[in-house]
Nucleic acid binder design. Structure first.
Lengths: 245, 245
DNA sequence: TAGGCGAACTTGTACAAACAAGCCAGACCA
DNA sequence: TGGTCTGGCTTGTTTGTACAAGTTCGCCTA
């Protein structure tokens, strides 16, 4: 582990433990540099990490402030339902409803950056949390990864992890669009809610390490089962509002 | 403007213009350093900015990849409905439905870090986009900012901007929780939708530059009017999934 | 032709130094 | 007492250097 990651981890633990209370001040960079026998640059990398997590804020001239103490989870947990569920202490399960190859639609071609009409794999899954159905997932995979996806167990718990182990595929970048929609007849039956009741929708496109689009997905969560959380600041502002379609 | 911000802006423009196509490679750090007559450290700060915006991705040993070309808006646009609307070319309006002081509930006391029972200001607003009602906003302000809020015009377009101009208040940090809920009778009437129809809910707590909580709010958007967008990566992962209440 | 190997390239990490810019508190003055 | 002002503290920006670690691609060999 890198030196600055170690320092960041140490500070994060101290914040979570309450050594540096919310609203309080962090030690100065010079102070931390001395304490860890590191250069100021390395310390700055460490606190930049905490700032990106939204744990601390800073202004030129003033000492850094502790903003929160909740640790945000890893990238994987946003993309992998199963791995997120496990880290939260839930038991995740799921099953494939349908899986078929078909030529891709123009809108999908753009998102997966393939030629329109090129063959893609369309998979529908129902996901459960502690046995309760909470998520209907419709994923379109690019043709080149389709064989690996078709080889997966239909009851496979974590698609992300299986694809890593079987094909060496690592999800590295994602784009997400979050809004609310009414449940259609099909979604409603699967999730056990009334037709027209609210669902939280996450549309995402995922990209491999090489910047190659792998999948785009339309996930619909039963209301109340899942929420998305974010911390932002004038410095780091990843989440933006968008007009509806 | 800082040198690295200038370089980042230049590269961002080039990406948006298509000089560096999506999926393509950025020039190497050494190359950029030479081109801009800056040190490699400065160039690294510039590309780190673009990476934080989700525009480029990087792996050790390989050249940086262009992931997207959409420019993400400023922090303010996530907190200020009016300023976001204006930047998107919409005309925002709004009106105060009610405004009253009351002792705060225990849950609010925690979020605003004040004593339970301390007086807060509870404001309900209806917001419109091009005349169409799209958002019901219920905001609880901390006692110390209440007088400035009460002095605002009820038809005030941008609360954020007015509070900056009248009280010098700058929103600097925010925490957001996004999920879907069904419209209650009141929300439904105000937004012109049927009771029980889906709404996108954004609960947020905003903090001043000093790390002092200013307001917490429960905003409900009519489905289809607004979506939230985010780009993330293994390196920068601000958005996390959370279990429902 | 297919595979392995290695050299050149590229990004990641770490240190040191210097100055700029903004904040804060204590000292000072009216 | 109240306001101002200054000096020290703290973060922001920039440059330079060095080595580590991973990728890429051409070359060579079997």
């Amino acid at each position: 582990m890198a030196r600055y990651e170690h320092i960041a981890g140490d500070l994060r633990d101290a914040i979570v433990r309450g050594d540096y209370p919310i609203g309080g001040r962090l030690p100065s960079e010079a102070d931390l540099a001395l304490r860890y026998s590191a250069s100021r640059g390395t310390v700055r990398q460490a606190v930049a990490l905490l700032a990106a997590e939204g744990l601390v804020g800073s202004r030129q001239g003033a000492r850094r402030i502790v903003l929160g103490s909740e640790r945000s989870q890893s990238f994987t947990e946003l993309h992998s339902f199963a791995q997120w569920a496990r880290s939260m202490g839930y038991r995740a399960s799921g099953s494939v409803l349908s899986s078929r190859r078909r030529p891709c639609a123009p809108s999908e071609a753009v998102r997966l950056s393939v030629e329109p009409g090129e063959e893609v794999l369309d998979v529908r899954r129902l996901r459960r949390l502690d046995g309760e159905p909470v998520l209907v997932e419709r994923t379109v995979y690019a043709g080149w990864i389709a064989p690996a996806v078709e080889r997966l167990d239909p009851e496979c718990e974590s698609v992300t992890q299986e694809l890593y182990e079987s094909a060496g595929l690592v999800f590295a970048y994602g784009e997400h669009l979050i809004d609310a929609v009414a449940a259609g007849a099909g979604d409603a039956r699967l999730l056990g809610v009334r037709r027209g009741s609210p669902l939280l929708r996450q549309r995402r496109t995922t990209t491999s390490q090489e910047g190659r689009p792998v999948e785009c997905s339309d996930d619909r969560y039963r209301a109340g089962s899942v929420a998305f959380s974010i911390r932002n600041s004038t410095a780091a502002n990843p989440l933006v509002r968008r007009a509806g379609d």
